[in-house]
Nucleic acid binder design. Structure first.
Lengths: 223, 223
DNA sequence: AAGCTTCTTGACCATTCGGTCAGGAATAAT
DNA sequence: ATTATTCCTGACCGAATGGTCAAGAAGCTT
């Protein structure tokens, strides 16, 4: 990473031992929590090490540097993200696609709340590490989807709303339940969100957003 | 705040001088930027002082402590927030209320993006300073509005959607353009959002959300 | 002009920061 | 059993952290 002078530590690359794997997992999990809660600058290796149950030196032995650890976490989160960015075609059913979109995004936020918050903190701080990704792969992906949405609109399958704003709407609405969890729980007087809650929220979002942009639900006749 | 041993500094309370006012404004603005970008822990007084164009000691002279400065910023943001939490009644027009709600929230995010991000960072970190506010005033406000939304639904003025999820949807969708500004700009290949952009987004959100929960726009007849 | 309050700031402090390193412990290879 | 390699960690480093303080500068009030 053009970081210079890190010739040693070839072990960092290939992981084979079992304890190594466990330790790395523990460190990544702890680091994700700490970075998510305090951002890149606010996170401290001492905190991470303590939460991972290891001495600070050991964390650095495995991860090389704070920056390297952070980048690795970001990349892991991007990989999870990309895993659900399946391709769609103009011939797919808008209702199915949009519902799957909302649902999978919601599940990602629920399955990896810390990673979701880590991502949010990165963007909040101006995305110093993710500029390239945002202006590259992610932009392309959004534009491709937007093009399909426009074609659906032309075919009368949905209202002619701006597809990019629509994608942002879905992102924000789903991401909210991970990033603003503290607010949601505080206001609704809950300890945590149950599976039933998440299902209800998903159904609500699907219903409102689909109806809101004139997409007829699957198998249901027009009103 | 039960912080103990801060008997001195009576000047911190009453502000009258003109230079004092200017310096305080400068410090608060700089601090809002830094706290927003890096969170409470990640922000440094040296950074804030430099951006305010003052020596670090002077910042502490005016603000007492990092914690005090942060709390003051949060309170200022809550005050801005409360300023647009006007009361509504069951007899108001749902379309008007919801549109005004979306619009004013959008304007708040646009007028005070740093404050908006500061708030977001606080929530992201588990809202250590805002627990009380969330579980108190804000919860009450949400529940009051929710009750009215339910009555509207009973009267057939809107679909019987869960009002709390609806409020969260509006919050998240509008907040997104401040908090995730870096993402929005990166993906849409913009330098900044123009007034026209914001107006278009507001119109989009109003249209989709109102239609999505079955609220008929003002002055328009039923479909 | 004297005296008082407010303002300003460089020097300084204890603590914590990310990171290095030497050397011992554990493990694998022969 | 003896290397050789990998793993582990306490001690340590310079830099940065939030905060204190004393002493001077500036501005009123009398």
């Amino acid at each position: 990473m053009s970081q210079g002078d890190v010739p040693a530590n070839p072990r960092v690359e290939g992981g084979n031992g079992a304890t190594r794997e466990r330790n790395e997992r523990e460190i990544l999990a702890a680091a994700e929590r700490v970075f998510a809660a305090h951002g890149y600058r606010g996170a401290s290796l001492a905190d991470i090490a303590e939460q991972a149950g290891l001495p600070k030196s050991n964390v650095l032995y495995y991860m090389g540097s704070k920056r390297g650890l952070y980048v690795r976490l970001l990349e892991r989160m991007m990989a999870r993200w990309n895993a659900l960015l399946d391709d769609i075609s103009v011939d797919d059913d808008p209702a199915e696609v949009l519902e799957a979109f909302i649902r999978s995004k919601m599940q990602l936020s629920r399955r990896h709340p810390e990673g979701s918050r880590l991502f949010a903190a990165e963007i909040l701080g101006g995305a110093p590490f993710l500029q390239e990704y945002l202006r590259g792969d992610l932009r392309d992906w959004v534009q491709a989807r937007a093009a399909i949405f426009r074609q659906w609109a032309e075919r009368g399958l949905m209202d002619p709303v701006d597809p990019v704003w629509l994608i942002f709407l879905i992102w924000s609405a789903t991401q909210h339940y991970a990033d603003f969890e503290a607010q949601v729980l505080g206001i609704t007087d809950r300890e945590s969100l149950s599976d039933a809650d998440v299902e209800a929220i998903t159904a609500f979002l699907t219903r409102v957003i689909l109806k809101g942009c004139g997409v007829r639900p699957r198998t249901e006749p027009a009103v």
